Simulated assay, not measured.
Amino acid sequence: MIELDDLDRQILRALVRDATQSASALGRRIGLSQPATWRRIKRLEEAGVIRGRQLRVNAEALGFGVTVFLGVKLATKGRVSLEDFERAVSAIPEVQTVEHVLGLYDYRLRIVARNLADFERVLRRRIMTLPGAGQVEANVLLSEERLAGPI
């Protein structure tokens, strides 16, 4: 585990808000030179604190107006490997995240669809035909108040 100081935390908060900003602009904002800021970012990346930078798109602006969290319980544990299920479900374009969880369900999926009819199509034709797919429970996202941020 890496020790983080206040400057490291400021860098992480700033990058979570806007990962596209330059080390120079970020350094000016927190009172460090560009090389010192760049070295800190590099150290955080090498330590695994920063795992990458992602582009976030507005799914609704692209025509995907429905987000569903789907709990999936595997029907045939032991007969279908977890890796086979994960590989198959990850190949479905509408599935944004695949989380192996502990609890009532084995997996939690975040799925985007154009509308509820489109989600039903994805569920019937893609999810329920996966190897080992069993019981499912859908929860439709009504609103998202807080986006993922630093711990």
Rank of each mutant, 00 (worst) to 15 (best):
residue 60 E to T: 15
residue 24 S to D: 13
residue 97 T to I: 09
residue 125 R to Y: 00
residue 134 G to A: 00
residue 104 L to Q: 12
residue 66 V to L: 05
residue 29 R to C: 06
residue 97 T to P: 02
residue 144 E to D: 14
residue 118 D to P: 00
residue 20 T to R: 14
residue 6 D to C: 06
residue 13 R to T: 10
residue 21 Q to M: 14
residue 47 A to Q: 08
residue 84 D to Q: 15
residue 69 F to D: 06
residue 126 R to C: 01
residue 117 A to I: 06
residue 37 T to D: 06
residue 78 G to A: 02
residue 44 L to F: 12
residue 108 R to Y: 12
residue 132 G to H: 01
residue 94 E to Q: 15
residue 19 A to Q: 04
residue 1 M to K: 11
residue 67 T to W: 05
residue 58 N to D: 14
residue 62 L to Q: 10
residue 42 K to D: 15
residue 89 V to W: 00
residue 144 E to V: 11
residue 86 E to S: 07
residue 24 S to F: 15
residue 17 R to S: 10
residue 2 I to N: 09
residue 46 E to T: 11
residue 37 T to C: 15
residue 124 R to L: 00
residue 101 V to W: 13
residue 100 H to V: 12
residue 68 V to K: 04
residue 41 I to N: 05
residue 6 D to S: 13
residue 128 M to C: 08
residue 91 A to L: 04
residue 149 G to T: 15
residue 7 L to M: 13
residue 74 L to V: 07
residue 85 F to I: 03
residue 134 G to I: 01
residue 118 D to Y: 01
residue 83 E to N: 11
residue 74 L to N: 04
residue 128 M to E: 09
residue 112 V to C: 02
residue 127 I to F: 00
residue 10 Q to I: 05
residue 75 A to Y: 10
residue 52 G to V: 02
residue 132 G to F: 01
residue 32 L to A: 12
residue 116 L to Q: 13
residue 65 G to D: 14
residue 98 V to A: 05
residue 93 P to E: 01
residue 35 P to G: 09
residue 94 E to F: 00
residue 56 R to N: 13
residue 100 H to N: 08
residue 61 A to V: 02
residue 68 V to Y: 08
residue 8 D to A: 05
residue 63 G to T: 07
residue 27 G to R: 00
residue 24 S to N: 15
residue 40 R to Q: 04
residue 102 L to S: 11
residue 25 A to C: 06
residue 64 F to E: 02
residue 125 R to F: 00
residue 31 G to M: 13
residue 18 D to W: 06
residue 142 L to I: 13
residue 31 G to K: 08
residue 129 T to H: 01
residue 150 P to W: 14
residue 78 G to V: 06
residue 28 R to Y: 11
residue 106 D to Y: 03
residue 18 D to R: 04
residue 1 M to N: 10
residue 36 A to Y: 06
residue 110 R to N: 07
residue 50 I to P: 08
residue 43 R to T: 11
residue 41 I to E: 07
residue 20 T to Q: 14
residue 107 Y to H: 03
residue 71 G to R: 05
residue 79 R to T: 05
residue 4 L to Y: 06
residue 52 G to T: 05
residue 10 Q to M: 09
residue 137 E to D: 09
residue 54 Q to C: 12
residue 68 V to D: 06
residue 71 G to L: 02
residue 18 D to E: 12
residue 12 L to K: 06
residue 34 Q to S: 14
